[in-house]
């Protein structure tokens, strides 16, 4: 046999390496099969956004309608409020939910007393483990105009109990601050982990130079947290269109739907709840949300990279 050409040689080697690890591919088989069926098949199915899906004809058999479903959404009465609500709730959540765990972590990190530190952590993590249904149930009870805590307090002070859950103006505040209440402790974990990796020599040197605690936070801790904070910020900005379905949906009532309907709940309502199920229309809205979200993530990541040198990739 003559000498193999370079290309042949390389592909032969590649084949050898693949064959050498064939058992690893066997391990991967089920996970990849699952990935294709439950994650990529739906992406293929999302093409019904461009069709008029009729169950009798199936996905491929239904007629193409181009961008008609998207146009319908743009021209719909719900388009503006749904987008506006989603953005308001998202950016409000981000504004409150992003800095607070960082502040909490910086603060906890200063505590030297082990018992106090551990108790604070234990207590602030706890609400994360309460389910969304129970959290919203707690909100309803806590803010109940007759039997709630705010009602009891108002009774005690001789005031008229407020009906916060029925007040559309209070919706975003309740949604966001109950979220902060539930997640600030858990959100701080990642920052505390990063703070514990900061080189102690930096702090020692700063102490020798007479830096106060506040100065050390400002010039050592916060810069140390920046890369992680940037990555998390990029991730959450990429998800601004994804207002947590489970919670919003539970908090919705006929009274507040005008400010509480977001893209995700609207998709569910037109897709699976309405008397005339409109799979194509619902899918089109969901797809639009997904594509805009992805583009947003790429854009934000690009800017984060340019401005701070940190990003997702």
């Amino acid at each position: 046999m003559g000498p193999r050409s370079g290309l042949e040689e390389r592909s032969f080697r590649l084949w050898l390496r693949i064959r050498r690890n064939w058992q690893l591919y066997v391990l991967l088989f089920l996970p990849v099969l699952w990935l294709i069926v439950f994650r990529y098949a739906p992406m293929y199915g999302a093409q019904i956004a461009f069709r008029d899906y009729l169950p009798a004809f199936g996905i491929e058999g239904s007629p193409w309608v181009g961008l008609a479903n998207f146009e319908r959404f743009f021209n719909s009465y719900y388009f503006k409020p749904v987008i506006v609500n989603t953005l308001i709730i998202s950016f409000y959540s981000l504004l409150a939910g992003f800095p607070i765990p960082i502040i909490l972590a910086l603060s906890v990190n200063q505590v030297k007393m082990r018992l106090f530190r551990n108790s604070v952590q234990m207590i602030t993590y706890a609400p994360h483990f309460i389910s969304t249904v129970v959290i919203v149930g707690m909100l309803f009870q806590f803010l109940h105009p007759r039997v709630g805590f705010t009602a009891s307090l108002a009774n005690l002070l001789g005031m008229t109990p407020p009906n916060s859950m029925g007040d559309p103006a209070a919706f975003a505040h309740i949604f966001v601050w109950s979220g902060v209440w539930q997640e600030m402790g858990f959100g701080a974990i990642i920052y505390l982990a990063v703070l514990s990796t900061i080189d102690p020599a930096l702090h020692e040197a700063a102490v020798v130079d007479g830096a106060s605690r506040l100065q050390r936070i400002r010039y050592i801790d916060i810069p140390g947290l920046m890369p992680t904070a940037m990555v998390l910020l990029v991730l959450s900005t990429g998800r601004v269109l994804e207002v947590a379905f489970e919670k919003v949906y539970l908090m919705q009532s006929p009274l507040n739907l005008g400010v509480a309907e977001v893209i995700n709940t609207y998709v569910y309502r037109v897709g699976l709840l309405s008397p005339i199920l409109d799979f194509s229309y619902s899918t089109a809205i969901g797809l639009l949300k997904g594509i805009v979200g992805l583009l947003l993530l790429i854009a934000v990541n690009y800017w984060a990279r340019r401005l701070t040198n940190n990003g997702l990739w």
Binding site: L35, R39, G293
Partner: peptide, 22 residues
């Protein structure tokens, strides 16, 4: 490639209805 295929599902999905249909 395979890792990326998994991670990508964190960034983009087929959506509620197409998943429901599967």
């Amino acid at each position: 490639v395979i890792t990326f295929a998994f991670i990508f599902t964190m960034l983009f999905s087929g959506g509620l209805i197409p998943t429901y249909m599967v």
